[in-house]
Write a protein that binds this DNA or RNA. Structure first.
Length: 695
DNA sequence: GTTCGGTGTCATGGA
DNA sequence: AGTCCATGACACCGA
């Protein structure tokens, strides 16, 4: 798969496109990582200093670009967090876009401006040829060039010299004659450096004093700017790409004055579509992130082809300005409503980036496939899968608390508020922002230093470095910070009971959000689910030890540790509570385990005893049976003996009158029952009765 | 909505 | 006296 060849990257600048890519709907409100993977169609360095206006009014800037190998200047634009600019003494002054935006009275326009300095690949000093080329391209656009070619057609006198110049250009736009309309528009002929009517429309949405002043200045500097322009182009053509950066500001100034040359998107469309084979040479996809659509896709689309760009894109094209021109006046006139309706912005962006109808004449889909795809990916993959309610909550919380939405979003994700102790997460949020600027979200979870090694973070609560020197600001917590930490105590289960109820009530009342607590609690549970409450508390208070350490440490080490580190009373109290609770928790677990073991053992004993009882019962019954058998045998033997006994006269002995009795020597004698021992007499009587009953 | 098991926590007593 | 441990009691959560 081929990629668009930056055929303009090695020559002087001819075009100046300003495209406002509405990135407001990116996850800037929640995701603090401003490192946007935005692949631009423009040469690097020319984007430096461009700004991204955040919802909170801060600005971010595009930092150094990363040009792709063999892309001839195409690169990856990175946005720099404003915090970084604050630390950078060489930070550029307030950019033009921001000034313009503020002049328009739009306080929050989270958009990114991309100035594209399209440089034609002409030989050094051959700016006229480039002008001719672009003039031809401008002339080739069907009546929709508008003011976008101003300066270009002047550089190529007559504007009709396009075909000849195109043939001499490396683009070899031989097909230009086929696609080019016969006549350039009147606007083309008028494009001598003056701002066109459309330019006026686009830039004059709100005639700020600054704009008027710029227009006045522009009229006086026209001639000079034209001369300067040619000179600058020749200079730029001899300079490497990064040196062109130095001229960006001056270009912007001239742009503001309306003296620079501009070119419409349609011109570029015509130009690119006329030479697709040339444009798609040399740059492989491997150099650039894979994108599903090449520029040819946009070019070949009739929808893209037939778009009249002259209406909205002719001079200084911006999606935002185009949006301003659209019927959605609330975007400009009601910044508050815009601030409060991120979803609508998202939908706006979606409609803009996905449908050409929203912006007639502004077909970024075809012209900027990379940007378009990025926007699509960002808007669809990252935005639509977001729970919009989070945005709502964030904004509502930001309104309620006066906090920054980013901070509020962080607060929502920080589940440490169920602690009965005062926490410090407002400081955390700030630290998070700082750490995010260096792409260390995880490390910045507690706002600690980003220079911590992963080992240091492992097991340590919140990744805080235990060095005393880095613990100094622990004591800098103000009560207000703690107050902010108590915000969400009411939304989560609080297992601690030693916090003053007044504190909880005050914080809950100040920020109570009926109907939101459940959802917030859900997010709280989702985010730091793996952390215990004490861990979150320690994390919030920047306890420089892990909970595991605090609990398992021997008492001597524990005391020495407390004495070594300078900790606040609150921290010491928390640490002792953590230790006590941790140990008690383990003890309770052991106790329950032992109790369970005792119960199980008792159950086993019961089972074994029941089994033994059954066995004994069986043995008892067997013994009873054996005894009965022996008794019966004894009775039979008794009867048998008496049946055979005879007295002195030879008569049978009656068992009713006599009984058999064993003597001490083992002999058996016949004894009259009257002479029997009373005990033996009773037994014999019992036995006799039994035998009688049986019989 | 109720029940029940699991869990954390506190209070208390003994070692 | 301080600490640890064991345990009953309570509250909360989730199934």
């Amino acid at each position: 798969m081929k990629y668009l060849k930056p055929w303009w990257s090695d020559g002087g600048s001819l075009f100046h496109l300003t495209i406002l890519l509405s990135l407001a709907e990116l996850r800037l409100d929640l995701d603090l990582d401003l490192d946007l993977d935005l692949y631009l169609l423009f040469p690097p360095r020319t984007l430096l200093g461009d700004e991204l206006l955040l919802r909170n009014g801060q600005t971010s800037h595009i930092s150094a670009l990363s040009p792709f190998p063999a892309s001839g200047g195409w690169g990856r634009a990175e946005l720099l967090h404003p915090k970084c600019w604050e630390r950078d003494p060489a930070a550029p002054p307030e950019g033009r876009l921001l000034r313009e935006v503020r002049a328009l009275g739009v306080p929050f326009i989270p958009s990114i401006r991309v100035d594209a300095w399209l440089v034609h690949s002409v030989a050094a000093g051959d700016a006229d040829g480039a002008h001719a080329l672009l003039g031809a391209a401008a002339a080739s656009s069907a009546g929709g060039v508008g003011a976008g070619v101003e300066g270009v057609s002047q550089a190529a006198p007559g504007g009709g010299g396009g075909p000849r110049a195109v043939q001499s250009s490396p683009l070899a736009a031989g097909e230009e004659e086929e696609k080019a309309p016969a006549e350039p528009t009147a606007q083309v002929s008028d494009a001598d450096g003056h701002a066109s009517e459309e330019n006026e429309v686009l830039r004059g949405v709100s005639h700020s004093p600054q704009h008027e002043e710029n227009e006045q200045r522009s009229s006086t500097q026209k001639e000079k700017s034209l001369q300067q322009k040619n000179e600058d182009e020749n200079k730029v053509a001899d300079k490497p790409a990064w040196e062109a950066e130095k001229t960006t500001e001056s270009r912007s100034e001239r742009y503001q004055n309306g003296t620079d040359a501009f070119f419409s998107l349609e011109d570029l469309f015509q130009l690119l579509s006329s030479q697709p084979e040339n444009l798609l040479e040399g740059v492989s996809l491997g150099d650039i992130a894979p994108l599903p659509r090449s520029i040819n896709d946009g070019m070949n689309s009739p929808t893209h082809y037939n778009v009249n760009f002259s209406e909205a894109v002719s001079h200084d094209v911006s999606l935002h300005e185009a949006m301003l021109r659209c019927s959605d006046n609330t975007f400009r006139r009601d910044p508050v409503a815009r601030t409060l309706q991120p979803q609508e912005q998202i939908l706006q962006l979606s409609s803009i980036t996905n449908t050409e109808q929203t912006l007639p004449g502004t077909n970024l889909t075809g012209f900027l496939p990379f940007v378009d795809n990025q926007m699509r990916n960002l808007s669809q993959d990252h935005l639509y899968d977001l729970d919009i309610n989070i945005l709502d909550e964030t904004n509502l919380m930001s309104l309620a608390t006066g906090f920054d939405p980013m901070e509020v979003s962080w607060l929502l994700e920080e589940p440490g508020y169920d602690s009965g102790l005062s926490l410090d997460s407002s400081n955390n949020s700030t630290s998070v922002i700082k750490s995010n600027s260096s792409h260390s979200i995880c490390e910045g979870a507690t706002g600690s230093s980003s220079d911590l090694s992963h080992h240091d973070l492992e097991g340590a609560v919140g990744g805080y470095c235990p060095e005393p020197s880095k613990l100094c600001y622990i004591n800098d917590k103000s009560d207000s910070h703690f107050h902010g930490d108590l915000v969400f105590q009411h939304v989560s289960h609080n297992h601690t009971y030693h916090l003053e109820p007044s504190a909880l009530e005050s914080t809950s009342e100040s920020l109570s959000m009926p109907g939101k607590s459940q959802k917030i609690s859900r997010y709280l549970n989702d985010t730091d689910r793996n952390l215990s409450r004490d861990e979150r508390r320690a994390k919030a208070l920047h306890i420089p030890f892990s909970v595991d350490e605090i609990i398992r440490m021997p008492v001597d080490s524990f005391n020495s540790m407390l004495s070594r580190h300078y900790l606040t009373d609150l921290q010491v109290s928390l640490i002792r509570d953590i230790r006590r609770r941790g140990k008690n928790k383990v003890a309770a677990q052991n106790c329950r385990k032992r109790k369970l073991d005792v119960i199980l053992n008792l159950e086993d004993d019961v089972c074994s005893l029941q089994a033994k009882k059954e066995t004994l019962k069986r043995e008892q019954s067997q013994c009873h049976k054996a005894i009965n058998i022996m008794k019966q045998k004894l009775h039979h033997l008794y009867r048998d003996v008496f049946s055979r006994l005879r007295d002195d006269q030879g008569r049978p002995v009656s068992p009713n009158q006599y009984a058999l009795q064993c003597t001490h020597d083992g002999s058996v004698v016949i004894v009259p029952k009257e002479l029997m021992i009373p005990g033996q007499k009773k037994e014999n009587q019992k036995g006799k009765r039994k035998n009688e009953r049986k019989n």
